[in-house]
């Protein structure tokens, strides 16, 4: 805690340890980029070199985009994550407002249910929801990817906690101005909730962009594949022969979130950890 006492030795030891750890953490990323830049001949060799002798980055990306519909996967990822988040907000915000600021019969019970629902892991409901979707015939569709996550108990809880901190005066003033209760949700509460909503949005988008379990269960069609599913199936088709393009595809899949994270680190870390209850 008091670095000045330890002096240079401690500082050096600290950096040494942290750099060793960082090497372990970064190794897969470095190796991914390195492999994606190498031609076949350099990949299938037993000597280790990180910098390729012949740069084949472009060729590998071209092959990846040619063999797998990467653009399509990315687009699906965007469609699915954005739809999920929009619907989550649409459903959670009014409920959170009612739970935080309105009095109605059964409020406490409902809140207890919300708290309980936070604890339900998504794997637990997979089989019944799958059977339900099978019954109503929406498997293998965008709806199948989006609908199960439209209700976010955690989102309701988070926004309710946030709304609790909004002063009642603000709401009373809005009522005095003749705004309806629904109007209050969207015109008064939503603007105050932007920071909390941003954190929740990052949490939601990251979780569903990276989700593999559920899309794997409900999807068959190639054109609906989300990024993780897309890269996994690309790998299965290539059956471990074409590592250059495979690594290029991996880069493409992780790039959107990693770049967004590097640009807004503080917000991302807040979003992931504040809401890291799952």
């Amino acid at each position: 805690m008091t670095p000045r006492r330890h002096g240079i030795t401690w500082s050096a030891a600290r950096h040494l340890l942290l750099l060793a750890g960082a090497a372990f953490i970064l190794l897969p990323f470095i190796w991914m980029v390195s492999t994606a830049s190498k031609p076949q001949t350099e990949i299938f060799t037993t000597d280790i070199h990180f910098i390729p002798q012949n740069l084949a980055l472009w060729e590998n990306f071209a092959t990846a985009f040619g063999k797998a519909s990467l653009w399509r996967f990315l687009l699906n990822g965007v469609v699915v994550t954005v739809s999920i988040f929009a619907l989550q907000v649409l459903i959670a915000l009014p409920a959170a407002y009612a739970l935080a600021k309105l009095r109605f019969a059964g409020r406490e019970v409902l809140f207890a249910l919300v708290l309980f629902c936070i604890l339900i892991p998504p794997q637990a409901t997979a089989i019944p929801v799958f059977l339900l979707f099978h019954q109503i015939g929406i498997l293998d569709s965008y709806a199948a990817l989006v609908v199960p996550f439209t209700i976010s108990a955690f989102g309701i809880f988070l926004m309710r906690q946030f709304f609790k901190t909004v002063p009642d005066d603000l709401i009373e003033a809005a009522r005095m101005d003749g705004i309806t209760e629904f109007g209050i949700v969207w015109r008064v509460m939503l603007p105050t909730a932007i920071p909390a909503l941003t954190a929740f949005g990052i949490f939601s988008v990251v979780a569903h962009w990276n989700d593999y379990f559920w899309p794997l269960i409900v999807l068959n069609s190639e054109h609906l594949r989300t990024p993780p599913l897309g890269v996994a199936s690309f790998r299965n088709e290539e059956a471990g022969t074409n590592y250059g393009p495979l690594m290029a595809a991996a880069i493409v899949i992780i790039a959107p979130l990693v770049i967004a994270f590097l640009l807004a680190q503080r917000r991302f870390i807040e979003g992931i950890t504040l809401t890291g209850i799952k």
């Binding site: 960082a22 953490i25 190794l27 990276n210 993780p228 495979l246 990693v258």
Partner: peptide
């Protein structure tokens, strides 16, 4: 902080494939 947090952000499936290649018996890192 950024470096150590990176794996949390990166799609695990994509990174699993990278790990698979890193652990490749013949050509792995």
């Amino acid at each position: 902080r950024t470096i150590y947090f990176l794996p949390v952000m990166a799609t695990l499936i994509a990174m699993s494939i990278v790990w698979e290649f890193m652990l490749h018996p013949q050509f792995g890192l």
